[in-house]
């Protein structure tokens, strides 16, 4: 054959239905699977992170302290953990907004049980059971009944927020057992365990997403469930499993949260809602472009933290965090939309 451009036909344009739904598949411009392929733009976000970091180090003297950098990273490990958990359901084409309240609800349940004399070893499984129950309920409503995932998990988000107030009697509960605190705050190689947990989860999810059939199935379930089903994938099981895993992991993050702060404020869940989603969405613009992936999420979150910390050191107020994350979410989604549109043209 001669050298002929393979012009895409109208039928070659990305699935139009995806754009009408507020979910993961609408954001996916194109896909490359493994590290070996894709353009340099996969590392653009990493490059921006490096540039911002260098700029901060050069122009902000306070930045040149290991303690600041360490606390910057460690203080955001809970958000990183939640952001990684968020990618699970996002990857299958849905939303799980309830993860932050599942975290707080599980933490609240654990501390209240411990306070009332239940041994920690018995309280932990109960907290995980709560997460599993939330995940199963979300999964049941979304997958079996067909309720929109955004609505379902917004509902469980609100219910769990109430649950946290109920069990704590609307007060801050402190007095976390030392073993739990140590399991989260002890340092290995100078880095607290909470940060290690986040990194380990990132690597684990990386393996699942990029290297296993399950990760591939999740991707196709999120991208085109009809085609996935006809290829023999048990779409409903994959989607239900994603909500279940999301719930269980969120409650485990709740235990880490408990050990990290040593207390539970029942009203704190709201602060953790948007930031993980922003990091997860921004993460689709890095490492594996167009797909929810764990290392991209890590890069995205660190980019956001460095940016915010820099602004705060320069004197910005705390509200800057909210503005920054909100804008980052919108920019991330807009960027992936634009990338998709560019692909569709020509």
């Amino acid at each position: 054959m001669t050298l002929k451009s393979d012009t895409p036909t109208p039928s070659g344009a990305p699935d139009r239905r995806a754009g009408t739904r507020l979910s993961a598949e609408g954001l996916i411009p194109s896909g490359r699977s493994l590290f070996g392929s894709g353009g340099p733009q996969r590392f653009a976000l990493l490059g921006i992170l490096a540039i911002i970091l260098v700029l901060c180090l050069v122009f902000i003297p306070e930045f040149r302290s290991w303690r600041l950098i360490a606390s910057m990273i460690n203080s955001q490990s809970i958000i990183l953990l939640l952001a990684l958990v968020a990618t699970i359901v996002l990857r299958t084409g849905g939303f799980d907004l309830s993860i932050s309240q599942t975290m707080v609800g599980s933490a609240a349940l654990t501390i209240v049980l411990v306070k009332s004399g239940v041994p920690l070893a018995a309280a932990v499984p109960l907290a995980v059971l709560l997460g599993a129950a939330v995940g199963a309920l979300n999964g049941f409503l979304v997958v079996k009944i067909g309720v929109d995932s955004f609505v379902t998990t917004l509902g469980s988000y609100s219910a769990l927020a109430g649950f946290a107030y109920l069990v704590t009697d609307s007060s801050i509960v402190a007095g976390v057992p030392d073993e739990l605190v140590n399991a989260v705050r002890s340092e290995v190689l100078g880095i607290p365990l909470v940060t290690w947990y986040a990194w380990i989860l990132a690597l684990l999810l990386w393996f699942v997403y990029q290297r296993t059939p399950l990760g591939r199935y999740m991707l196709f379930v999120g991208g085109n469930p009809d085609a996935a089903r006809l290829a023999g994938i048990r779409v409903q099981a994959v989607r239900f499993g994603a909500y279940l895993a999301s719930g269980i992991l969120s409650s485990l993050v709740g235990l880490i949260f408990l050990g990290y702060f040593g207390a539970v404020d029942p009203g704190t869940g709201g602060q953790y809602m948007l930031q993980p989603l922003a990091a997860a969405f921004l993460g689709t613009t890095a490492i594996v472009i167009g797909r929810f992936n764990s290392l991209g999420t890590v890069v995205a979150l660190y980019l956001l933290i460095v940016g915010i910390t820099g602004l705060q050191v320069l004197g910005a107020q705390t509200w800057v965090t909210n503005v920054f994350y909100g804008l980052a979410l919108m920019i991330a989604v807009a960027a992936s939309k634009l990338a998709g549109r560019k692909k569709a043209l020509r």
Partner: peptide, 16 residues
């Protein structure tokens, strides 16, 4: 709708 997912590569679609 049923045959493939356009955002995935040809390879990923084939080996699914």
């Amino acid at each position: 709708r049923d045959g493939c997912w356009v955002a995935a590569s040809a390879q990923e679609n084939v080996t699914l």
